[in-house]
Amino acid sequence: MSTLPFPAAVYAARLARAASLAAEAGLDAIIVGPGPDLQYLVGVEGDTIERLTTLVLGPGVTPTVVVPRMELAKVRTTAVGELGLAVADWVDGEDPYALVTAAVGTASRVGVSDALPALHVIPIGERLGVRLELATPVLREGRMIKDAEEITELRRAADAIDAVHRRVHEWLRAGRTEREVAADIAEAIVAEGHRTVEFVIVGSGPNGADPHHEVSDRVIENGDVVVVDIGGAVPSGYNSDSTRTYAVGAPDPAAAERIAVLVRAQQAAVDAVRPGITAAEVDAAARSVLAEAGLGEAFLHRTGHGIGVSVHEEPYIAPGNDLVLREGMAFSIEPGIYFAGEWGARIEDIVVVTADGGERLNLAPHELTSVGLG
């Protein structure tokens, strides 16, 4: 029985678009291994293992899934079965790379997905007798522009993670460790509608100055500024990612003033989103507000990243990225400020590019929120 989040026709359209984009790129075929691209194209989830699973498609190529026979039943519950795609299954002792070669046929340019490891790339290239190249530009182009069904799922994910942020006051207080708070948050992420917990960051006090801090056994203290960055995948596999900054007890006035500037910077970047603007220009909108307030050096990373079946994917909202935004792109807007040894703060929402602007999907309060006052 199929458990696909979308109708089979959606996957058929994605496969057709991928083949068309491959033709435009001059590729005779593309080979897609397990990972986000395969999940997007046919709903097959999971990571690469030593046994080869891959999808072969392209202009003039019959879409074919090469899969170990022991995985065949699972694969047939996806769009592979729904669409009746060709399947070439194999058992241990047989040569799966010969099956890939047969599916590709005669080719001079073949692309591979970036999640396919060298363990499989090298023997595939040897069998085909061609220099393989990355299919990333082709696959990225398809995934960057979300269709209506994907945006619905991103909205569902945003609502679910907003519900968790609105409950943070239940767990975040002085005397508890970051790890204890994170455990409660992780339980709530699932309770509020996610299938999996992808990450929980609770960065209190000086730990908040590390943008990629996760959790520790540090005991949270009164007066701490705390970064809470959380996300998970809803049943369809689409992800949430949202950050809010909290103060335990009454916030320090100087910190509160700086965080208010950060909130304005985040809003400026959200307001800048529209078709035709570049990713770098959105990044600059946030960066300029912080720079004008003397906080430019405290902003240590890009403004955002795309999101979908992966938490991080194209487009990246970063300095120097001249990619022009188009309707249907979805990405985070998450400027932050960090003061080593003291505290950090970050505000993050997912935004979708609309026909004439941008839609903010996360609606939980953005301002510095005091908790643990009772």
Rank of each mutant, 00 (worst) to 15 (best):
residue 139 L to P: 10
residue 213 H to E: 11
residue 108 S to C: 02
residue 138 V to H: 02
residue 169 H to P: 02
residue 184 D to F: 11
residue 210 D to A: 10
residue 206 P to Y: 07
residue 207 N to A: 13
residue 124 I to F: 03
residue 110 V to K: 00
residue 208 G to T: 07
residue 135 A to W: 13
residue 212 H to Q: 10
residue 155 R to C: 02
residue 189 I to K: 10
residue 148 A to T: 14
residue 106 T to K: 15
residue 192 E to G: 03
residue 207 N to K: 13
residue 165 H to N: 07
residue 168 V to K: 08
residue 168 V to T: 08
residue 104 V to T: 15
residue 186 A to M: 06
residue 164 V to Y: 01
residue 115 A to W: 10
residue 175 G to R: 05
residue 146 K to G: 00
residue 109 R to Y: 00
residue 204 S to V: 11
residue 143 R to A: 14
residue 147 D to T: 11
residue 146 K to I: 07
residue 143 R to H: 01
residue 159 D to I: 12
residue 147 D to L: 09
residue 163 A to Y: 03
residue 197 V to I: 05
residue 189 I to L: 11
residue 120 H to F: 04
residue 222 N to T: 14
residue 177 T to I: 04
residue 188 A to Q: 14
residue 162 D to T: 04
residue 207 N to F: 13
residue 210 D to T: 06
residue 200 V to H: 00
residue 136 T to I: 05
residue 157 A to L: 04
residue 146 K to H: 12
residue 108 S to E: 15
residue 171 W to N: 02
residue 114 D to M: 09
residue 177 T to N: 03
residue 205 G to A: 12
residue 105 G to P: 11
residue 106 T to W: 11
residue 207 N to I: 01
residue 152 T to R: 14
residue 159 D to E: 12
residue 154 L to M: 05
residue 117 P to V: 03
residue 177 T to A: 00
residue 124 I to R: 09
residue 218 R to C: 05
residue 218 R to Y: 08
residue 154 L to C: 04
residue 181 V to N: 03
residue 120 H to W: 01
residue 113 S to Y: 10
residue 139 L to Q: 11
residue 188 A to W: 02
residue 177 T to K: 05
residue 185 I to C: 10
residue 175 G to N: 10
residue 129 G to W: 11
residue 172 L to V: 08
residue 218 R to S: 08
residue 184 D to E: 15
residue 170 E to A: 06
residue 112 V to G: 05
residue 201 I to N: 04
residue 128 L to R: 09
residue 119 L to V: 11
residue 185 I to K: 00
residue 216 S to Y: 06
residue 115 A to P: 01
residue 127 R to F: 02
residue 163 A to Q: 06
residue 222 N to D: 14
residue 211 P to V: 05
residue 162 D to P: 03
residue 171 W to L: 09
residue 124 I to W: 09
residue 208 G to F: 05
residue 131 R to F: 03
residue 179 R to Y: 11
residue 141 E to D: 15
residue 215 V to L: 13
residue 200 V to W: 04
residue 177 T to Y: 01
residue 162 D to L: 01
residue 163 A to T: 05
residue 145 I to C: 00
residue 143 R to G: 07
